[in-house]
């Protein structure tokens, strides 16, 4: 619980942050809200030599309207995402999910960019961004790069971000009024990582499900989508939900830990997906 020694650099701009990363290479880590990184450092699971604090980079904070998309600065806190009028009006699912991240303290310090760059499959936001088909914007020495959510989460606590890249923005699509959603988060205690979470995003049209997307939390080393369930629901009626949800765990490799066996996780994914879809499509 006492971290190893590290140097601390506070930067005022994205360019400075990129410069600091370039200078220190993979020995440096970006410090955003610190609510994932600092616990790992206290346990000495992470021992970066340099922390680059982007907490005062104003350009990384806040939400803006970019036509079909919302642009969310990486340093926008979960609490701000939850309360932001643009997010609430145009991508309410993100506001709803951000509201159940961690606890109040985490939501006031932790940031959407930090949680995304941390890439924890047990976090609530990665699966949500995956289901939203969000785009991550990264800045590095070689310039700007847009990374689709489907390409962003590549392994356990591993993302497509390069050592010299800073995640600066997350772009999410605006959802029109035909979209409905529900997130089922299932955890051991009220304030804990999800054992399993299932986010259902459903677009309804004329009494049928035009499109369904299901993001699963903590069902694999990375956030995943329940593709078979989604395929089974395309163009189907709500009656198809029960059967479709039975396929929710297909092609996943659920981890084993103290809270759940893989079998139980797969079972939970099916139950929670059915409930999330019913709530969203109901």
């Amino acid at each position: 619980m006492i971290p190893a020694a590290f140097d601390y650099v506070r930067v005022d701009s994205v360019e400075e942050a990129i410069g600091a990363l370039a200078e220190h290479g993979d020995e440096a880590k970006i410090l955003a809200g610190g609510h994932s990184l600092l616990p790992l450092m206290k346990l000495r699971f992470a021992m970066p030599e340099v922390l680059v604090d982007v907490g005062r980079v104003a350009a990384l904070k806040g939400v803006s309207d970019a036509g079909d998309e919302l642009v969310i600065g990486a340093m926008t806190t979960h609490h701000q995402v939850t309360r932001d009028p643009l997010v609430r009006d145009h991508c309410g699912v993100l506001a709803d999910v951000a509201a159940v991240v961690g606890d109040a303290q985490v939501r006031h310090r932790g940031t959407i960019g930090g949680a995304t760059a941390h890439g924890d499959a047990a976090g609530d936001l990665p699966a949500t961004l995956l289901a939203l088909e969000a785009t991550m914007v990264a800045h590095g020495r070689s310039g700007l790069r847009e990374i689709a959510a489907a390409d962003f989460f590549v392994g356990h606590l591993t993302t497509a971000l390069g050592d010299d890249e800073v995640l600066t923005e997350i772009r999410v699509p605006k959802l029109d009024a035909d979209w409905a959603w529900h997130y089922e988060k299932f955890s051991r205690v009220a304030q804990a990582w999800a054992i399993v979470g299932s986010l259902a995003l459903v677009r309804r049209s004329n009494g049928t499900i035009e499109q369904a997307r299901v993001g699963l939390t903590h069902m694999d080393a990375v956030p995943v989508r329940a593709s078979a369930t989604e395929a089974a629901l395309a163009g189907a009626s709500a009656e198809a939900i029960t059967a479709a949800a039975e396929q929710a765990a297909e092609a996943t490799s659920p981890p084993e830990d103290l809270s759940a066996t893989p079998e139980f996780r797969a079972h939970l994914a099916r139950v929670l997906t059915r409930r999330a879809l019913e709530a969203a499509a109901g």
């Binding site: 616990p39 346990l43 051991r188 205690v189 009220a190 304030q191 804990a192 103290l258």
Partner: peptide, 13 residues
């Protein structure tokens, strides 16, 4: 070995 894995209830539970 830490409060991440050892679950104590809070008021919300």
């Amino acid at each position: 070995g830490s409060l991440i894995d050892y679950h104590i209830p809070s008021a919300a539970d």
